[in-house]
Design a binder for these strands. Structure first.
Lengths: 137, 137
DNA sequence: AAGTAAGTGCAAATCTTTCGCAATTAGTGT
DNA sequence: ACACTAATTGCGAAAGATTTGCACTTACTT
């Protein structure tokens, strides 16, 4: 039931580093590899950045985490959930708003109808400004 | 009327490098800085990559060009036009489909209504797969 | 024609991500 | 518990993209 099993069930070895990386991604929500490393270091100071990168990749391969591109900020990882969602990324304050993919269905359908394009909104954020930033300068 | 004026009107000096960078962005459509440099070199072999980067930034500051993030492929520049458009970026073949912003209006409106989010679809591409890539493996 | 500030070239610095390789360690069988 | 093997880690170096400092050049002004 524990954490162990979800990793081992995927055919992965259970290392402290790997568990911590996964835990950090889950705790941080949309963190950069750097931020994940930072977080892991609080528990496991010796972890190497390469190890973080490799684990993020490995965890993504087995479907436990996913990354998306948030424009300027670079790549960010988040835990996989049942709920696939799109990301609205405020370019001013960096806030990320999650939007259930259903809310985007009619849009993606129209892109399919109009352009034959099969949209994957989960993978790339949508840029813009959140309410409060929009109301500022 | 000529090219000179559009640059000078923006308060910029008219250098061969700058003109060529602008011309390259216009000719290439959605080119990476590297590609712009490559193109400029055919006319002006000595141009330095830094100069290309600096000019892209400068031209963007005065509004003559814009960049957008196309996921994995990195940053791409295109000329500013009357026609703002969104980019659909096929993750398999890299093709970019331009979509008039009108076609996205009801979607962005719904994000505004639902989340108070002011979407800027021009800035970040939308990932997915084009028709033909979708029909392959 | 001379002055000056913008622009350029060059080399080095940064930043992010990847890679090779030797040392370590988790999971397996004994 | 013990040894074995392959996966994983740490480390240092490498690669790719973009930025920066600085001295030299050049476009524009007067």
């Amino acid at each position: 039931m524990a954490d162990q099993h979800e990793l081992r069930d995927k055919g992965l070895r259970l290392t402290p580093q790997r568990e911590l990386v996964l835990a950090a991604v889950r705790a941080l929500e949309h963190a950069t590899p750097e931020e994940v490393a930072e977080r892991v270091k609080s528990t496991h100071p010796g972890i190497n950045l390469s190890t973080v990168y490799r684990n993020l990749e490995t965890l993504e391969n087995v479907g436990l985490v996913q990354h998306s591109h948030l424009g300027h900020g670079g790549v960010r990882y988040h835990a996989s959930t049942e709920e696939i969602h799109a990301h609205l990324n405020c370019e001013s304050c960096g806030t990320i708003i999650e939007v259930p993919i259903d809310a985007t269905a009619s849009f993606t359908q129209s892109l399919l109808d109009g352009y034959g394009f099969h949209t994957d909104l989960a993978h790339l954020a949508i840029a813009g400004r959140c309410e409060s930033c929009f109301n500022k300068p």
